[in-house]
Structure formats: structure tokens, C-alpha cells
Design a protein around this nucleic acid. Structure first.
Lengths: 336, 336
DNA sequence: TCAATTTTTGCACAGCTGTGCATTTGATTC
DNA sequence: GAATCAAATGCACAGCTGTGCAAAAATTGA
């Protein structure tokens, strides 16, 4: 007999029948602020418990304005920085009674189909953590009343809310750290991926170096990964005039860079080579690295994102928000 | 004039009106295998493009059996192992035309409300990556026709499909690795979190050591994290008779353990201390660690999960699947 | 006890789609 | 040009819920 009940989900009508009330009463029992008497409420709850009823949020989203679904569009989810971001974001979204749909744009699926997917599911908002969505598609989203929040992209796309970390100040600061440590020849370690924030860090650092009259060598290798940082070190450190100060635009690159510098070139850090990273991923604090870097204020950023997501549609769009990355002094740069 | 169109989503009816066809034609245009003439199809597509129409998957899920939503219930998402798992899983789910809902059970939200959430959204399946869902709730899921897939839990819960890595064989193998390397005093580094697979690894290792007549010291500290591994090293290595071979039930623990062993106790690895880990996270391959460990066959596991998710409801449930963790030799254990 | 007021309840509709069925359109054949 | 058949189309219903509105019930006050 339990076989035929297994077929499908239990609906509010079945609960109403069992409880001997109308379906409206069931609906009202599970709607905050609706008017139901105590006695029917308990009857309904008992019937729902017995049948294993759960409100169908898909149908509810059909009626209401909000589906309570928020899409996260991200690539390189297994990266320490991204995964921490996603962890924090999902936790806070849940606290705000939202549920996160995670769309991975790593493989063949680009950002476009991902963003289209969010429209299919009537998401309240889409948070773009990586990649560059086409403006036309963003327009479609906004046109359909869906919020689009773009994280860490400096480019000023008209329409979407944007949240970013100010890269320039921190990158300039990085140069001055290295200069004060006595470094004479600078290096920039970056990837081929032309992410806006990475490019911004690089150019700000290079410009500051030019102002100070310090030579800069920049390498761009593959993805923004440990392996790329390692390869960059092999290229940079085997040159005749090797750099003695390196700015890695990402901590992950810095880890690879430091490992090769130490284990393949036998260099001591920070005595012979100073390294500055960016992001303050967990590994930066591991005693194998003790990396001096800049901390992305993930708590502040995510808090602001949550505010954007939960604000009413009539409120005016907030101006692009920018947060400062704070320096974290460890031991990969010589003290003054 | 564009202000009032911004209000809400565009529906199939609007597209039909603009294209001059019936709403059914619109629906059929976006349904695979439905019968529509070429001319109306193009008319509909043009109108849809002009209005920015996207099929409402929420309403579609109301009609069809499957919502194409798959829920991932996970904790410690920012952990290297979990994030890699999630990355692979989301990618493959998307390739199978599913979309992943990520539910984070790290904070105050436990597994129970998470699993209940999956019922609310009529998920096709729930994949439980962490935590122990109550049997009654799993029953409710199955009763409602929702698949539940439990990953890496050894306990035999009746009902849900389960996929796991066989821990015992690998753990016994770990002991023999250390024994062949000449280690005399064994240590087990684990956490207080009594995850089934961690406990299984520990007990298997301990039993194998007992069979070989080798002494074993086990420590359990806090979460399964780098910091716990570090603290474990401080406790174990300051003892009078310190161990010379350590089995860390997780690579993350191993990283913390190795760092403290080297930088606080000045021990050389593998000359004075051999370390074996588990999982083969990315950091295990970094040259700061070169950790000998056991690789979780994530590709095989996720492939099997996808097969479970996409199989028809009438097919018989597959038996619990178990995969072997393969040893990965690096340099944290002395060669024979 | 009765009138007035508030609370509760049920009805019916809206929200958006997929699909069976009958009907119409178009093509093909003689 | 008529007949036959396949393909395409529109209608109407189902699927599950939230909510305005009117009716019913319960409460309050005198």
C-alpha cells in the first residue's frame, strides 16, 4: 500500500482532505501573517506531519513576486578564494531566507547560458563572481526585474549593481612595502586571464614603480593557479638580473612562486627575495608561507551583497560600492 | 515607456500575442519533440527574442515530473576537498541538464532543515555530502519520490543510495607504508568530529598496527582543519617518546602537522618523521609538502552519482557503491 | 438574549506552463 | 479537382499555490 503513495509529492489538497478543512486553510497555515484559528492550525499541522507535506516553493514562486532563489555564477570554485567567498555567501543567503543556486562556468558553459539559466528559474538576483556577461543579456535580466550584482569587476557596466575591492590603493601600497624593504628590481606575477581586478592590480603596481624609478618585469602565465606561479618563478629567477621583490596578484600564484624560489632556486625568503600577495587565502597564513598580503574584506563585501539582494524593488539602486583591502603583515617581506 | 515593462517577467501569453499565434504554439516551440511548423517556430522565436522571454522552469516543474533541480547539502565548503568535490559535481550536473542548489550546513542550519528545504523546491535528488540526516526525514524524501544520495558515510541507512570510498583498505595500506619505511612508533592525527569515514580510517589503521605489534598514539583535536593538525603536532612531538610515523586522516590535518613538525620542532621529513595523509587535495602536491597520500577517485564517484541522479524512477535502486582510494607516492615517506 | 463587531472560512480566480484531443491546414496522390 | 493522409494548431484542462471577497462563525458588549 505504501507503493502507490510513493509516486509523487503530496499536495495541499490531500492535507486539507485529511484534516477536514478547505485547502485555503492549509495554505494560510503555512503563510506568515494569515488568519487561521488555533484549532484548525493544529489540525492542519498534524495532517501535514502525518502525510509528510511540504509547501511547493515552485508554485509559491509562481504567485508571489519573489522566488527566493539567488543564483551564484562562478568559475574556479575549487580555488581557496572563491570557495571561501561562496561559503560565506551561501551561509548569509540562507540566513536571509534565500537559497543559492550555484552555476559553474568553468567548463564549456560560459557566463551567457548561466545567466540565461537564472532567468529560467526566476531568480530574485544573480551574483556574478567571475567572467564578463554580455551587456545585452544583463539588460534582459533587468528588464525582467531581476537584479544583477557584479563582483570585483572594475568596468563600469551600466545597470547592474557592482561591488568591488579597490585594487589600486593596495597595489601601490605593495610597491612601497617592497621598496621600503630595500628591493631594487621588481617583478609582477600574473596570469593570462585578463580579469579586470587582476589587470588593475598589475597596472597600479607598475605605475607606482615607474613613479619611483624602479624597474619592473611582468610575466603572464596560464591560469591563475599555483602551477602558473611556479612557472613564473622558473622564468623570472633564471634570468641574469633576477628580481628581489615580487608582487603576485593572487596568493595562489604567490604560493607557487615561493615554493619554486625556495626549493628549486634555494633562495631564502625574505632575506634574498621579498614576496607580496593578494587575497589573504587560508594558505597564506600557513607557516610554510607566512605570506604578507592584502586581505579582501569578504565579510563586508558579502554583507553588502546581502543588503542589495534583500532590498525592495522600489528602493533606488545603490551606487557602486568599493571596499579597501587591508595589508596583512607576515614574514615574506623584510621588516624595515 | 520602458518603465512599466520592467515590472515583471514576460510570459508565454505575451509572446503569443506578439507573434500572432496561440500560447500552445509558444509552449511547443520550447518543448523538445513537439510538433510545430517551421514558420511559426521562427515567428515565435523572433517574438521571444524581442521581448526577452525565457521559459519559466518553476511552472514547468509544476507540470512535469522532474524539476531538474538537484540539491547539494554540504558543510565546510571552503575546504579544499569539499570545494573540489562541489566543483566537479556542479559541472557534471550541468552537463546532464540539471542545476545545483547548494545548501550550506556550516552555521546554525543543520542537515534537517536543509533536507526539508530540498523538499520545498521539489528537487529531483538530494546529495548529502556531510552530516547525518535523520532517518525519518529521509523516509519523507523517499516517500515523496525524491532520491537521496549519501556520500562517504559508512553507516548502512536503509533507503538512500550510498556512495563511499573504502577507507579500511587504504588505512591498512598506510600502516604498511610506514612500517616498511622503518617507523617504530605510530601516531594517528584526527579530529573530534566523528565523521564515519574518518573514524573508519582511524580504527582500520589502529587495528593493523595492533596486528603488527606497533604502538599507536591517537590525538583528536577540534575541527578537521590545518590548525587542528598543527596543534596535534605540538602535543605529539613534545612527548618523551615521540612518534616517527604519522597517519593523518585528512591531508589538511597533515599540512598543519608537517608545518609544525618542521618549523617548530626542526624535524626533517621524511628522514626523521614520515607522514601519510588522505584525500590528495591540491596542496598535497605543492612542493612545500610533497605529501604521500591516498587519492579519492572523485571522477569515478561523481560519475556514479550522476548516473544515480539521472536514472529513471522505475529502475531498481543500485546497491551501495564503493570505490578504492589509490596511494599516491610523494616524498613524505622514506622509500624502502 | 440580541445586536454589533471581529475573526475565521470557503469559494473562486490568478499565476504560468505542458499536453490530450478534436479540428483545421497543408500536402500528396489519383 | 477530389480524396486521403499527415502535420500543425487551438481549446481546454491539469498541476499547486496565494489571496480578495463574501459568507459564516465566534466574540464582545449591553
Amino acid at each position: 500500500m505504501s507503493e502507490n503513495t510513493r509516486k509523487s509529492y503530496v499536495s495541499a489538497q490531500q492535507v486539507a482532505d485529511l484534516a477536514g478543512v478547505s485547502r485555503s486553510a492549509v495554505s494560510r497555515t503555512f503563510t506568515d501573517g494569515a488568519s487561521v484559528s488555533k484549532s484548525t492550525r493544529t489540525k492542519v499541522l498534524a495532517a501535514a506531519e502525518a502525510l509528510g507535506y511540504h509547501v511547493n516553493h515552485l508554485a509559491r514562486g509562481l504567485i508571489r513576486e519573489r522566488s527566493n532563489i539567488v543564483c551564484l555564477i562562478a568559475a574556479d570554485i575549487n580555488t581557496p578564494y572563491q570557495s571561501r567567498f561562496i561559503e560565506t555567501l551561501t551561509r548569509r543567503l540562507q540566513a536571509a531566507d534565500k537559497v543559492a543556486m550555484l552555476i559553474n562556468t568553468t567548463g564549456d558553459t560560459g557566463v551567457e547560458p548561466a545567466l540565461r539559466q537564472t532567468l529560467h528559474y526566476r531568480a530574485d538576483a544573480s551574483i556574478v563572481l567571475s567572467g564578463q556577461p554580455a551587456v545585452s543579456l544583463i539588460d534582459t535580466c533587468l528588464h525582467n526585474g531581476q537584479r544583477v550584482i557584479v563582483v570585483n569587476r572594475d568596468d563600469d557596466i551600466e545597470g547592474p549593481q557592482s561591488v568591488s575591492v579597490s585594487n589600486t590603493g593596495a597595489a601601490r601600497n605593495a610597491l612601497h612595502m617592497l621598496k621600503r624593504a630595500g628591493c631594487k628590481r621588481m617583478a609582477i606575477v600574473s596570469s593570462r586571464v585578463g580579469t579586470a581586478s587582476l589587470v588593475a592590480r598589475e597596472t597600479a603596481f607598475a605605475e607606482a614603480a615607474r613613479e619611483e624609478g624602479l624597474p619592473v618585469d611582468a610575466v603572464h602565465i596560464g591560469a591563475t593557479s599555483y602551477a602558473s606561479g611556479a612557472e613564473a618563478a622558473r622564468q623570472l629567477l633564471s634570468r641574469a638580473e633576477r628580481p628581489d621583490g615580487a608582487f603576485c596578484v593572487t596568493d595562489l600564484l604567490a604560493c607557487g612562486f615561493m615554493d619554486v624560489a625556495r626549493h628549486e632556486f634555494g633562495l631564502r625568503i625574505p632575506e634574498e627575495l621579498c614576496v607580496v600577495g593578494f587575497d589573504d587565502i587560508e594558505q597564506a597564513g600557513w607557516s610554510a608561507y607566512e605570506l604578507t598580503t592584502f586581505r579582501q574584506p569578504i565579510d563586508d563585501i558579502t554583507a553588502h551583497i546581502i543588503a542589495l539582494v534583500t532590498q525592495g524593488p522600489e528602493e533606488p539602486p545603490a551606487p557602486p560600492a568599493s571596499f579597501e583591502a587591508q595589508p596583512v603583515w607576515r614574514r615574506s617581506v623584510r621588516p624595515r
